Amino acid sequence: MDALADLLDGVRARSAAFCQAILEPPWSLRIADGARLALATALCGHAWIVPDEGEPVLMRTGDVAIIKGPRPYTVGDDPATPPEIIVHEGNRLTTMDNIDVTDSLRLGPRTSGHTPDGSAIVASGTYQVSGDVSERLLNALPEVVLVPRSSTTIPIIELLAQEVNGEGPGQQVVLDRLLDLALIVALRAWFARPEAEAPGWYQAQSDPLIGPALRLIHGDPAHPWTVALLAEKVGASRAAFARRFAVLVGEPPMTYLAGWRMALAADLLRSSETTIDSVARHVGYANAFALSVAFKRVRGMSPSRHRAGV
């Protein structure tokens, strides 16, 4: 398991609200569905993504955008076009004065618009994002990630467009899996671009020394890792390994390991009824007391209080 795979594990399309809008200028949609993460693409024409804070981003045909929520934002034919429709959770559509127009704008099971002949088609899907592990991925992204069409070589978006217009057996599962794959392809393409300023843990995965060490940590976080043991496993001296890890990842090996264990523990405490002692052993602590000491030091509260959502 590598760092990106682990962080993506909690970002999944499950019964995803994937849809497409067929539009004719001037048009503008206010996106207020509360999604933590969304993927959008212009299948035809273009669209401006306008965060409430930050610069507008132009999405041309075939480009893919990843938008962080849950704050609302606007998508339109021009940054200056005022919104006329609000998109709510579950693809419910209202006018700006809260009149429900979902049914009147429905052109198909997952398609909305005033006319099927609009010059712009925007497809989008939202993701469920849960837990501290996935939060580490979100923290590495800007408000809007734009991946140009030229940067993605796999025709995932075309497959999504074909599937969203069909009604075959298992369609929801197919859409969910295609949406997951589209996100992975888009993120990899984004992080490969110089302007992305990819986080240290991502860049370090390709390093011949630190990459294997990261895979060891993510593959078995409960192992009693030490700097010396990790260095031995990757064939480097302790001092050289520690220096290189800190430079590439941005923090010392044991600090990274502790942060990763805390994120895993936090998610397990919230997502399962496993005892705190079992959670402790799962992430590499001897018992509940040891986890509690570390958890309080890092999170400022006990594991039980975190589990209770206090």
Rank of each mutant, 00 (worst) to 15 (best):
T94C: 02
H88P: 04
H114Y: 12
T61E: 09
E55D: 07
G76Y: 10
G125W: 03
V129N: 00
V50Q: 08
T41W: 01
I85K: 08
S104G: 07
G125P: 03
V145S: 01
E143Q: 10
T102I: 00
G90K: 01
R110N: 02
L146H: 06
P116E: 12
T111V: 14
P82L: 11
L146E: 12
G108T: 06
P83K: 02
L93G: 00
P83M: 15
V87N: 04
R92A: 07
D100V: 07
P70A: 04
M59F: 07
E143W: 05
P51Q: 08
D97R: 06
D117C: 00
T95G: 05
P109C: 13
T115I: 01
D117I: 00
V64P: 08
Q128H: 15
A80M: 05
C44D: 15
L146D: 14
T115Q: 06
S112W: 11
P142K: 12
E53R: 11
A140S: 08
A80W: 03
V50H: 08
Y127F: 14
L138R: 05
T111I: 09
S119D: 05
H88K: 00
D117N: 11
I121W: 06
Y73F: 03
R106A: 09
P116I: 05
L93R: 02
D78W: 15
T74R: 03
V87G: 02
R92G: 05
